[in-house]
């Protein structure tokens, strides 16, 4: 039914096969929406990246070719931003795995109250990132922060410390806020895969006298490995683009210490330099496109099969 593909048997007819337009009608709203908010803007970003556009003189931009690209390679903030982006990606994604995998394994055990624990781990995910940022800034505040209070009380610190003004400390505080917010989704996805592993495999391993570590290594890990790879890819892409947490907590500061490329592009936009901002964003987007292509290929295959 509903088969619009021209089949050889029907080619006998002298007139052209009538194409079933219904699926195209169904697709039209989505296609129109994506052209308007995604495809056309993405192309437009590439064009803007090759101009000297500023927000102050809209519509008067001049084509400048690769001037912005040359500027990028002479721009210390951009060049150091590459390292800052990498550092941010690795720290967040690695630590998210380090927390999400044990939580998922734990929640895969059967115990009373599991539903409650599973719901509660999603709380950090549900909270708006801007709120999480606000709460973490509040906890690490130099004057009223609970972290300072606790550390002074137990004698680790002599006096209150202004954590978010410290380049190293602020980086790790933002990283931990991000992990706290981002890790639940990973845990839930890994848990969903864990629950598809047939119990018989573990029972057979028990008969063979395999220990917990061997069972994890030979049964659990191979089953979740594809999902872990997929999460690694997608989280790295998202984290490279992530702005909210960094920008809300310190605006990329102190100084330029937390300027990832995404935050840099965003800051340039708020400074009206939209041509150069687009160039930075497009450069970042093109690098990530390689990973994205892998992801989409994998996804399209699994969806179409």
């Amino acid at each position: 039914m509903n088969n619009a593909v021209v089949t050889p048997g029907r080619a006998m007819k002298p007139h052209r096969q009538k194409i079933d337009l219904l699926p195209y009608y169904f697709l039209a709203p989505m296609a129109a929406l994506l052209i308007f908010v995604s495809f056309y803007p993405a192309g437009y970003a590439v064009w803007l990246g090759m101009t000297d556009a500023t927000l102050l003189k809209l519509g008067q931009e001049q084509f400048t070719g690769f001037t912005n690209l040359v500027r990028m390679f002479n721009d210390k903030i951009f060049l150091h931003g590459l390292w800052r982006t990498l550092r941010w990606d690795v720290a967040v994604v690695f630590l998210e795995f380090a927390i999400a995998i044990p939580i998922a394994l734990f929640l895969n055990l059967e115990f009373r109250g599991r539903g409650f624990v599973r719901a509660s781990i999603l709380i950090p995910y549900i909270i708006p990132p801007a709120v999480t940022a606000l709460v973490w800034v509040f906890m690490f505040d130099g004057n009223f922060g609970i972290v300072n209070e606790v550390l002074v009380n137990i004698g680790v610190l002599d006096s209150y410390y202004s954590w978010l003004s410290d380049p190293t400390a602020s980086f790790w505080i933002i990283v931990f806020a991000m992990i706290w917010a981002g890790q639940p989704l990973m845990a839930i996805i890994i848990l969903a895969v864990l629950q598809t592993i047939p119990k018989e495999l573990y029972e057979a391993a028990n008969v063979d006298g395999a220990g917990q570590i061997r069972k994890f290594w030979h049964i659990t890990l191979p089953h979740i490995a594809p999902t872990l790879m997929f999460l690694l890819l997608i989280r790295t892409i998202w984290m490279s683009n992530h702005i909210d947490m960094i920008y809300v907590m310190t605006r990329g500061g102190p100084g330029f210490s937390n300027y990832t490329e995404a935050v840099y592009s965003f800051t340039l936009t708020t400074q009206f330099q939209i041509g150069y901002a687009s160039a930075v964003a497009v450069a970042l987007g093109l690098v990530l496109l390689v990973g994205a292509a892998f992801y989409v290929r994998h996804l399209a295959r699994s969806v179409l099969s």
């Binding site: 509903n2 088969n3 619009a4 593909v5 194409i19 079933d20 219904l22 699926p23 195209y24 169904f26 697709l27 989505m30 296609a31 994506l34 908010v37 995604s38 495809f39 056309y40 803007p41 993405a42 437009y44 970003a45 803007l48 892409i237 490279s240 683009n241 702005i243 995404a262 592009s265 965003f266 936009t269 939209i274 901002a277 687009s278 964003a281 497009v282 970042l284 987007g285 990530l288 496109l289 994205a292 992801y295 989409v296 996804l299 399209a300 969806v303 179409l304």
Partner: peptide, 27 residues
């Protein structure tokens, strides 16, 4: 439905899912 252009259209729409918000901001 099975229709002409199903696969390229799907790939295009999934790509839209991965277009970073940073790229879309300015345009």
């Amino acid at each position: 439905f099975r229709f002409a252009g199903r696969r390229p259209l799907l790939v295009a729409m999934l790509m839209a899912y991965l277009v970073p918000s940073v790229v879309l901001l300015v345009p």
